[in-house]
Computed example of a mutant assay.
Amino acid sequence: MDEQIIDDVRTWLDEVVIGLDLCPFAARPRAENRVRIAVSHARSEEALLDDLQRELERLADTPADELETTLLAIPDMLEDFADYNDFLDAVDIWLEQFGWEGELQVASFHPHYQFADTGPDDAGNLTNRSPWPLLHIIREESLEKAIEHFPDVDGIPERNIRRMEALNADERRRLFPYLFG
């Protein structure tokens, strides 16, 4: 089961995130095999926070030239986006409580991701729709370095929305099969 979950996330990362250039910072660490994809089989928030803590520690204890970032897939809970979104509040508190603020941050991706003030079928939501609920652990120092060398960071979200809007129905079905199954 874990192999399939990891393969799903890897395919999404390669074909959607990198393939559509949604994150201009992802291709290099992926090509250099510095992206960890882990699976949490937690069934409670406490157990998931424990798994997240282990991944935060692993990332903090490993040099960036060996491990840049981690994607933690959550196949056994938080299927409902509202529950997932509520859990992100606990993640923020966790990061603050354990002193990770300023060092690591967590970005969110979910099969039913929906930005505030959008409809569920708005194309822009596809930018954050992953095959499984994910917690993406990012090194703030690496992010800051990448942003320094990117000409228009503020334009990335709008550019990504335009990319999603430009996809035809066949492309959407191919890139997001988990949404049409």
Score class of each variant (00 low, 15 high):
residue 3 E to L: 14
residue 3 E to C: 09
residue 4 Q to R: 14
residue 4 Q to P: 02
residue 4 Q to T: 05
residue 8 D to A: 13
residue 12 W to C: 12
residue 14 D to S: 15
residue 17 V to R: 13
residue 18 I to P: 13
residue 19 G to W: 02
residue 21 D to K: 13
residue 23 C to T: 03
residue 25 F to H: 03
residue 31 A to D: 14
residue 31 A to M: 12
residue 33 N to W: 08
residue 37 I to F: 10
residue 37 I to C: 08
residue 38 A to E: 01
residue 39 V to I: 09
residue 42 A to I: 04
residue 43 R to M: 09
residue 44 S to N: 06
residue 49 L to K: 01
residue 49 L to Y: 07
residue 49 L to W: 04
residue 50 D to T: 15
residue 51 D to M: 06
residue 52 L to E: 02
residue 55 E to V: 04
residue 56 L to W: 00
residue 56 L to V: 00
residue 62 T to G: 06
residue 64 A to P: 13
residue 69 T to Q: 01
residue 69 T to C: 10
residue 69 T to I: 06
residue 70 T to R: 03
residue 72 L to P: 02
residue 74 I to L: 15
residue 74 I to G: 01
residue 76 D to M: 10
residue 76 D to S: 12
residue 79 E to F: 09
residue 84 Y to I: 11
residue 90 A to Q: 15
residue 91 V to C: 09
residue 93 I to Y: 11
residue 94 W to N: 10
residue 96 E to W: 09
residue 97 Q to D: 15
residue 97 Q to P: 01
residue 98 F to S: 06
residue 98 F to D: 14
residue 100 W to M: 01
residue 100 W to A: 05
residue 101 E to M: 12
residue 103 E to C: 00
residue 104 L to Y: 01
residue 104 L to G: 00
residue 105 Q to V: 12
residue 110 H to V: 11
residue 112 H to Y: 13
residue 114 Q to E: 12
residue 114 Q to A: 11
residue 115 F to C: 11
residue 115 F to N: 06
residue 117 D to R: 03
residue 117 D to I: 03
residue 118 T to R: 00
residue 122 D to M: 02
residue 127 T to H: 05
residue 129 R to Y: 03
residue 131 P to G: 12
residue 131 P to I: 09
residue 132 W to T: 13
residue 133 P to D: 07
residue 133 P to E: 05
residue 135 L to K: 00
residue 138 I to R: 07
residue 139 R to P: 01
residue 142 S to N: 05
residue 144 E to K: 15
residue 145 K to C: 11
residue 145 K to I: 10
residue 146 A to V: 09
residue 146 A to I: 09
residue 147 I to M: 14
residue 151 P to S: 15
residue 152 D to A: 15
residue 152 D to W: 06
residue 154 D to K: 14
residue 155 G to E: 05
residue 155 G to V: 06
residue 158 E to Y: 06
residue 158 E to W: 05
residue 158 E to V: 14
residue 159 R to A: 10
residue 159 R to L: 05
residue 160 N to R: 00
residue 161 I to F: 02
residue 161 I to S: 03
residue 162 R to C: 02
residue 164 M to F: 01
residue 165 E to V: 11
residue 166 A to V: 02
residue 170 D to T: 13
residue 173 R to I: 15
residue 173 R to N: 09
residue 174 R to I: 08
residue 174 R to Q: 12
residue 175 L to G: 06
residue 177 P to R: 01
residue 179 L to F: 03
residue 179 L to P: 04
residue 180 F to V: 08
residue 180 F to C: 07
